[in-house]
Design a protein around this nucleic acid. Structure first.
Length: 194
DNA sequence: TTATGGATCTTCT
DNA sequence: GAAGATCCATAAA
């Protein structure tokens, strides 16, 4: 088992921090795009009652992927126009995941600019909905395995020192607001909100 | 079958 | 800083 898989099988908060500095890559319609993960949020897991987690009420058709094997891809549609990507964490049977909130664009930047219709690099993927547009992530990728899929994958890239990682409350939710489960690389220009 | 609200982004002031 | 766009998944009936 790879070290990344082992990380994702463990506590969601550890997995979230460990994903910072990894790369996220997609291959869609022959175009390769990738970026480094600079901001994440943890949802569910760790035996904590997390009302903001989609899976907190139990297994539904929408959230069943969060109860599946760690390392799978959970994509959902929000506000009528945007997608968000999550990495499923913890053991099979536990409803937990890490939301990927922001990337630093690395490869396929021209493709991302075209998909996003903007030219400013740091705005290509500095938000959960934006990075899905930039990497062409939608529900076709639901259930793919980040560690073995050819369409979407996560790989270790840069080691982030723990004193570079900042934790704060999560963004854009109305329940369990107080949990400090958002992690990002301090002072990185591609982080969505400070 | 219908009603409700959301892990957001953009545009405008 | 504030508001509108817009549609899927849920829950209730």
């Amino acid at each position: 088992m790879s070290s990344l898989r082992r990380l994702l099988s463990g506590p969601t908060l550890e997995a979230a921090k460990g994903l910072l500095g990894c790369t996220l890559t997609t291959h869609v319609r022959g175009e390769k795009t990738s970026g480094m993960i600079v901001e994440v949020e943890a949802y569910g897991g760790c035996d904590v009652f997390d009302e903001a987690c989609h899976a907190h009420k139990g297994l539904t058709p929408r959230t069943k992927i969060m109860f599946d094997k760690p390392g799978l891809c959970y994509v959902y549609f929000i506000y009528g126009m945007y997608h968000c990507v999550n990495v499923v964490t913890e053991s099979e049977g536990v409803g937990a995941a890490v939301l990927i909130r922001a990337l630093e664009p690395l490869e396929g930047i021209e493709t991302m600019k075209k998909r996003r219709q903007i030219a400013i690099e740091k705005n290509l993927a500095n938000g959960p909905g934006k990075l899905c547009q930039a990497l062409a992530i939608d529900k076709k990728l639901l259930g793919e395995d980040f560690l073995s899929s050819k369409k979407i994958s996560i790989e270790p890239y840069q080691k982030i020192k723990s004193d570079k990682i900042k934790e704060t409350q999560r963004i854009g939710i109305s329940k369990a607001v107080e949990l400090p489960w958002r992690f990002f690389i301090d002072k990185h220009p591609c982080v969505s909100v400070y």
